[in-house]
Computed example of a mutant assay.
Amino acid sequence: MKRFVLLSMIALLSICLVGMAYSAPKLYSKNNVLAVFITNNATTSSDMTLIVKCEGGGTTYFDEGAEIKYFIPSANVANWTTRAFNDSSWTTGVSGIGYADGDDNTTIPGPPMTSVFVRYRFDAPNAASVKTITLWFDYDDAFIAWLNDVEVARSDNIKAVAVGKIPNWDEGLGITDHESTNTPAGKPNATRWTKAVGTASGQIMKFDVAVELGDTVSAVSPRAKLTST
């Protein structure tokens, strides 16, 4: 009996964990947040890049040239990947962000550089009809991304961090190097997203992410009947 109960508990826990790992993020008509951890493989890395494009239902929500909030950490920051996090004290910049290679609209000092926390805030006026959003990443060296609190994308070279875990600010050190496409900066440079898709250096990554509507649909009260006197 004890063994049956134990096995049942393990099975239930497994189901819960699978549900957490693969739950679809919410998409709201206003104030969505894509939070991205971009990291070098070494503090002495000669370059760094993060450029993201996001669209859904044929609408581009943001692209290279969009406003970003960013923070260069030297310690962990609690809850920074969440939608509710207050990033008003962070630096305002323009996507893409990084240094060297001539592909950044916002240039940060480096090397040395370990990682950068970046937040993109955007509206999705067509959220009610969108079932999938598409994300493109041009990056150097590695990234993990969260949409409205849920992990939705990561580069192939950052496998040591468990899915759903917020990495430590320096947890990307020691990963495999990945070079960006080195496409010149633009607002946007449309040729960037015509590059080959894959995980090899010089390639972009593309993710189709299933989403659920986050807005509460208000019930419409029926009109009162007219009465005659």
Rank of each mutant, 00 (worst) to 15 (best):
T194V: 12
F85T: 10
N31E: 14
D208G: 10
W136R: 03
W90E: 02
L27M: 05
I10H: 07
F4K: 06
P112S: 13
S221W: 08
P167M: 08
S180I: 04
N86R: 11
F37W: 13
R83I: 08
V150T: 03
T49C: 11
K53G: 08
E64M: 08
C54M: 15
G202A: 04
A196V: 11
P112N: 12
A24N: 15
N148H: 09
A127C: 15
W169R: 00
L135S: 02
F4M: 08
A78K: 13
G19K: 11
Y120C: 06
A42I: 10
T176N: 05
M9F: 03
P167E: 07
N126F: 07
K195L: 06
Y99K: 02
G93M: 02
W146G: 01
G65Y: 10
T107H: 08
H178Y: 13
V150S: 01
T44F: 11
R121D: 15
A153Q: 08
F71C: 06
K165W: 10
G102Y: 05
S221N: 06
M1G: 06
S228E: 09
D87T: 04
T59L: 12
Y28M: 12
N168W: 00
Y99T: 07
S8R: 12
P184I: 00
A24T: 12
F117E: 00
T49P: 02
V152A: 11
A42S: 13
L135F: 07
D87E: 07
S23N: 04
V220A: 06
P112W: 09
S180T: 13
A75V: 09
G98E: 14
N31F: 04
V52M: 08
A24S: 15
L50F: 11
M205H: 02
F117D: 00
A100F: 05
S46F: 01
D149R: 00
E171P: 02
C54E: 08
N76A: 15
M9E: 07
L6V: 14
A24W: 09
N189G: 13
S23M: 07
E179Q: 13
K131T: 13
